[in-house]
Each structure stands twice: as C-alpha cells, then as structure tokens.
C-alpha cells in the first residue's frame, strides 16, 4: 500500500520534485566519482574545508545583498579558495590539515557575522544552510549541475588513463610529462562547484560525506580503479534514491548520510568476509 502511495505521489508531484530529483542524481554521480580521486589522493579534508568556506562566502554574499543569484558569486570565490587550499596541501612547510581547519572555521565565523548583520538576522533559515534542504534545488541549479556533471564525466572518459596515473603516483606522472598541477586545479575547481551546489541540498555539515562515503564503501570490495569509480557512482545514486523516496519523513541530508553509512557497513563486512575466504 505504502509503495503504491509513493508511486502515486511521484506522478502527482512530478513537477515539484523533478528539479530536486535530477539535481540530486547528477550531484550523487559527480560527487562520488570526484570523491574517488580526492580520497585516494588524501584530499578528503579539502572537501570538508570547501563546504565550510562555501557557507561563509554564501552568507557574506547574502549579507551584502546578492540575494537573487548568490550562486554565481559564490562559485568563483570558492574555486579560488580550492586553489589556495590545494597549494597549502602541496607545501611541506605548513601542516595542511591544521591550515584547512583554520580556514574553514574562519570562513564559517565571518560568514555568520556578516550574514546576520543584515535585517538583524539571517534572511533564509540558517538551519537549512547548515543541514540542507532538498526543496532548495531549482532550474538554475539543474543547469549548472548538468554542465558540471557533463564536464566531470567527460573528463573521466577522455582523460581516464592520465587521471589514474596522477592519482596513483603524482611524481611519476609528472616525470612522464603530465601537467599534474593543471589536473589538481581542474579537480579542485570541479569539486568546488559540486560542493557549492550540493551544500544547499545536503547542508554545509553533511556535503563532504557524499563525496567520501561512496568511494570508501566501494574500496572495501572492489580492487580495480575502474570498478571503484563505477561502483561508487552506483552506490551514491542508490543511496540518494533510497533517502529521497523512502525516508520522506526525515531530514533529507541526514538520511542520505545514514543510508551511506549503512552501505559502508555492509560493504566493509563483505570485504572482510571475502578477504577471509580468499586466504583460506
């Protein structure tokens, strides 16, 4: 019966849910395949840092009056921030994890202060920026997300072998003549765009989980690069759909994370078991 209701609802409300649904699917695919590279390059923290910075920039943009299309202001600034974080990660002088923590909490604090100056408080609900809300997704998000997804998937298809090499061993890749810095900038920019759009749906505090969780889950079971990329995209989309259609009564971003957590536990168990049997 409840299943019937869901399907019925789907058809009745398709106009309302079509933007969140498609933005969510594209976001899940993009975030998870970028996540494979970020996790393997040990850049997971950059994803987390970027989401906090997006929040800060977002809040400042709203505070300064760019209320109509803040996203077009936020994206370039966050891309720049991604580039800076990457440079910090490359330098050996600064401890990059500490630097990222510093950056992200400062951005969060400044954003909150500037954002609350206007009208003596936040104009849009701060809770939804922190934890996300699926109703945020609109046509503009869908267009930007579709372009980003196309670029990400296209990049992975055309540059797959180079991406593998840069991710596996950057110094060797550089020695064979690959422009590794260009690759890193490309990845940081795509991650930044994905996060800016995704954080309004998933929330500042939860967005980095959809980047990290699917690839970690699939790495428990799959041991080849291509398989990891495909499976994490599938895991991510399935987790999104489960949260979207079944956990309808719960906060959306949090549900996605919990479903991903359950997937991770399942995959980790399968991985452990198959390792044990392989040894015997």
């Amino acid at each position: 019966m409840s299943n019937n209701n869901i399907v019925q609802n789907l058809f009745n409300n398709f106009d309302i849910i079509k933007y969140p649904l498609f933005v969510g699917i594209l976001l899940s695919i993009t975030a998870s395949i970028l996540g494979v590279v970020l996790v393997l390059k040990r850049y997971s923290m950059i994803g987390d840092g970027l989401s906090h910075i997006s929040f800060g920039v977002y809040a400042v943009a709203i505070g300064l009056g760019f209320t109509d299309t803040p996203i077009l202001v936020v994206i370039p600034i966050v891309v720049l921030a991604a580039y800076i974080l990457l440079r910090i990660g490359e330098s050996k002088k600064i401890k990059s994890d500490a630097a990222i923590a510093l950056f992200s909490s400062s951005a969060l604090a400044i954003g909150y202060i500037v954002g609350s100056m206007k009208h003596g408080g936040f104009t849009i609900d701060i809770n939804s920026l922190m934890f996300g809300s699926i109703v945020f997704a609109n046509k503009q998000d869908l267009i930007i997300m579709a372009i980003t997804a196309a670029i990400v998937i296209g990049t992975f298809v055309l540059l797959y072998h180079r991406i593998f090499s840069v991710t596996f061993d950057e110094s060797f890749a550089k020695a064979t003549g690959i422009h590794t810095r260009l690759f890193n900038i490309l990845f940081a920019s795509l991650t930044a765009i994905t996060i800016v759009i995704g954080m309004r749906i998933m929330g500042t505090l939860l967005i980095s989980s959809i980047i990290i969780f699917p690839s970690l889950s699939s790495m428990q079971v799959f041991k080849k690069f291509k398989h990891v990329i495909f499976s994490s995209a599938i895991i991510s989309v399935v987790a999104f759909l489960v949260a979207f259609f079944i956990f309808t009564n719960y906060p959306f971003g949090a549900s996605v994370v919990v479903v991903n957590l359950i997937f991770f536990i399942i995959f980790a168990t399968i991985g452990k078991l198959s390792n044990r049997y392989a040894r015997e």
Binding site: F168, D169, S171, F172, A173, T176, I178, F222, K224, F225
Partner: peptide, 26 residues
C-alpha cells in the same frame, strides 16, 4: 623513474596491469 617509497600506494585499488601500463603514458 622509480620514485621513493610512497605510503599512498599501499592500499590503492589498481590491478598490476593498470599500474604497469600507466608507464606508457609518455
């Protein structure tokens, strides 16, 4: 080039074939 040992590689999901082939990128 055979770089210095890198901890990053130890748990990397890649087949031997994929790794060796990546040397042909140049």
């Amino acid at each position: 080039y055979l770089p210095q040992h890198n901890d990053n590689l130890d748990n990397f999901p890649a087949s031997v074939y994929e790794v060796v082939r990546s040397g042909c990128l140049n």
